[in-house]
Design a protein around this nucleic acid. Structure first.
Lengths: 337, 337
DNA sequence: GTGGTTTTCGGTAACGTTCTCGCTACTTTA
DNA sequence: TAAAGTAGCGAGAACGTTACCGAAAACCAC
């Protein structure tokens, strides 16, 4: 199992100089003659020297690794956020270690439990929807490993957070439905434990009351994020005596599930019942009628999260900040009468 | 930047025993009294000891990291493969380091160039479509770092590969079109450089000739994987004097782009022109008419790739093998007349 | 009891790198 | 021309852990 690679000792021996000098030459050229530096660099290329990050990490107590902990990667939003993270991390010479929780609180706990403090310089997190304890994150931060939350944030933890404008996005979405003449607007909400679930619900409720419409609690259904959940939510709503004439879903997948359920009931989407989602998943342009939605700047969120984390990692005592990026209403056919 | 954590030295000091004993007790209990082992374990929990993987990696010359190098992660196929990889890696105590090439050969080269040999125990790869040189992979393998290819494999490199049955999947897809009575079948093919592009094209061509149909070269268009490419390909095909009456696309996104182009031209999909894709992207069930496709076992491919890599990593001289998983035709509306 | 095993433990080197400090030799200054 | 400064380099310790080997202690059989 043991392998031997070219080390700075090999370079030193071949050039008959000390390892200290080689080490200095390879990094930055202070206290080293330009000529020797050239020689070292040339020899390093010749021998195809690659630094041993374990050794560097050991002596500097850092790893050049950033952790990314999130519920899933098989959907548009998370994979796009991740791509943004990757771009920034890579440009700054950091590698990404990915942990997928499958939206399970136990899994999240287990991952954080096993996490070696020495193997990560920082952590980007979107919490699972059933998470109940955030002690592990606080422990990480206490131990000098910065944590930045994105999208699904843990309010209680004092650190930087990056998210879209959930409240105003939801408000605008609901307002748009009202403007289109819909009056009995239901909300297919997300899991109860998440911050943005509440923000989006609040935006929905405020838009209703500000227009003089009452909030009807049996038109608000909390469930998961999947297409199936949206489908089932409609089934429940359509058992009510007074059915809604519009649906505001917490995300596009749920909205799509809802649309499929409406189609099954031969309900004309748009004309009879308006549907609006959240995310701007590419699917929203594929389904017919095309889905009105609130676009989240996923790629930007990834980039900014990572940039913020790097700031926390390199500078000391950067104070925690909340970055809220604007969400944008995109009107399509599903809310056109 | 320096941090201090609990080490085995701390445990040894508190228990007044040697670090060697602590080290043995924490790993596996040979040469250590069960009682002392218990004491060590208890103290480790009490002090919240976390092993330093840099130090372990340094002395054992391994990292407990597996690299995953792929063109993108923002699509159904790759993100699902990745989830499969993650499941196996995690179950075996390995972390995943992700590299995204954005399907750029230069980017891929740069990543491999910078790769520290000590920071990875193995690598899973899906090559970029413009890749021209595979020397870096061979160098890795020579240096004792196993490489396993999945989906987009590099034929020339002698190592294990995992893929779906591209040839038979394409053959079956084309045969299905023929069985449905389509006769002028075009192929929206993938980039020319990739192995599976050729396999799928071969399957398509063989199915045609075996049914006595001729292969018409202006009905075969090679382009990228995106929806836009599919859209443009149809535009080109519809300029021809003799238009096709069916389209076999190399993947679902392209098929969907093609469907959008057909809809724009008021062509009735299924009835007038059949369309079939490849992948079984969830979008294929959302679009209407729903898209007939060839399902790839993406999750399985991820799992098996990682299992195979682990085998190469742990056992010596495991011989390279090619695993080909069956692809499954799923008939939907887009090929129903 | 004596000699020989076996069990259990500790000392020390090693992994590849950086870091601190001190030394030499050359250059500058008065 | 001597004193002072500076550029360039090397020796050795340190980072946290495992691996190897030898020694002490406990056990066993006769």
């Amino acid at each position: 199992m043991r392998r031997h690679y070219i080390t700075i000792k090999d370079i030193a021996r071949e050039l008959a100089i000390s390892v200290s000098t080689v080490s200095r030459a390879l990094r930055d050229a202070y206290d080293v003659n330009p000529k020797t530096r050239e020689k070292v660099l040339a020899k390093a290329v010749e021998l195809n020297y690659k630094p041993n990050f374990n050794a560097i990490g050991l002596v500097q107590s850092q790893s050049h690794h950033i952790g990314v902990l999130m519920p899933a990667i098989t959907n548009y939003y998370f994979s796009t956020v991740f791509t943004g993270i990757e771009q920034v991390a890579n440009a700054n010479g950091y590698n990404l270690i990915v942990f997928i929780t499958n939206d399970s609180a136990e899994r999240e706990q287990a991952i954080l439990q096993d996490l070696s403090l020495s193997s990560l310089d920082g952590l980007l997190v979107s919490v699972s929807s059933q998470a109940d304890s955030y002690a592990h994150f606080e422990e990480l931060i206490r131990n000098g490993i910065p944590v930045v939350f994105f999208d699904r944030v843990a309010d209680a933890v004092l650190t930087s957070k990056v998210m879209q404008d959930d409240y105003h996005g939801a408000y605008e979405a609901t307002q748009h439905l009202i403007d289109q003449g819909y009056r009995r607007i239901a909300h297919l909400a997300g899991p109860d434990g998440l911050t943005f679930t509440h923000k989006r619900r609040k935006g929905y409720e405020d838009a209703l009351t500000n227009s003089g419409l009452s909030v009807q609690f049996d038109w608000i259904i909390h469930s998961g994020f999947s297409q199936e959940c949206g489908f089932e939510d409609v089934a429940r709503l359509w058992e009510l005596a007074e059915k809604p004439d519009a649906l505001f879903a917490v995300n596009d997948r749920k909205a799509i599930g809802a649309m499929l359920a409406l189609k099954e009931r031969k309900v004309q989407i748009g004309k009879e019942v308006g549907v609006i989602g959240f995310t701007n998943d590419p699917m929203s342009q594929i389904i017919s009628p095309t889905l009105t939605t609130v676009a989240e700047p996923a790629f930007e969120i990834g980039k900014i999260s990572c940039e913020l984390l790097l700031k926390h990692m390199t500078r000391k005592n950067v104070e925690a900040q909340e970055v809220i990026l604007p969400a944008r209403l995109i009107v399509r056919e599903s809310t056109r009468r």
